[in-house]
Amino acid sequence: MAYKVIHYINQFFANIGGEEMAHVTPEIREGAVGPGLGINKAFKGEAEIVCTVICGDSYFNENTEAATKEILELIKPYEADAFIAGPAFNAGRYGTACGTIAKAVQETMHIPAVTGMYIENPGVDMFKKELYIVETSNAAVGMRKALPKMSALTLKLMSNEADLDPTIDGYIPRGIRKNYFAELTGAERAVDMLVKKLNDESYTTEYPMPVFDRIEPGKAIKDLSKAKIALVTSGGIVPKDNPDRIESSSASKYGTYNIESVLNLTGDNYETAHGGYDPVYANDEPDRVVPLDVLRDLEKEGVIGSIHPYFYSTVGNGTAVKSSKEFSLEIAEKLRQDGVDAVILTST
């Protein structure tokens, strides 16, 4: 039996109209419409578009939440195996709509979703990590090339073919680092690469260096003697026996520990859970990682206003940047609510 696929397009590709009709609300039509006919052809009977959802670009973008909900309700009864949106080419609002709805379908219906966009469509940056976005030209003249690629990728995803490769399947790399066994060992590949580099021949690095984003520095504290300071560490200092079982590497959580009545962190009551450094010094004297003793004295002397009653700790060892970002945003939210003025963050 052929796979069942749902297709999403905007008012323009459904032949309803251009900008003047961009306000139309979601509707559903049986079978393929517009570009869907080309997709069906490319499926060669292996899959079939069972229905087409149409929504105006303005309506979708101005009512994102409601539109998403309405569309999900409309398509639910069709029990499809996959979802295709677009292609949106370089149309920004259409791209955003395709990305948003495709992601929502993927997450709520647990079926694969595919869309298509031009590389500079703002939807690409918004969704490339979560979605398979087939790279298209910047205008609808590229339709004939885009549809077979989108169809082939959809078929592949439905049949659970594991080995996807952006260079073969034509989608924009999602930035997911995936392991595989190469034909040669790393040492052979390294020597090959060096020979090519020495001979000024082209070679492909296996890990292109990332560009790190920057953030604005927070405003300086005006009056230190009134400031509430919080301690945070990635050095893994935790109460003895690690009650939250924070992992020694690749931490999946952080701990929140009350230090209201604690004057300093001693080796009797605290230790490190960090697996990336020699733990002896931190275990002997945890203040070497989280300087509570000094900060308490400064509090007593009136140099600083007060110390936030909790300190936050995780293990920075091999911990994914994404996880530590999540931890820090959660921590930051609590700090903000508790009126913390500044943070001393220590790393090992």
């Binding site: 504290i221 530590s324 921590i331 003025d341």
Partner: peptide
């Protein structure tokens, strides 16, 4: 992550 909320670190 923390500084993005405006608290200096």
């Amino acid at each position: 992550g923390i500084e993005s909320t405006g608290i200096p670190v």
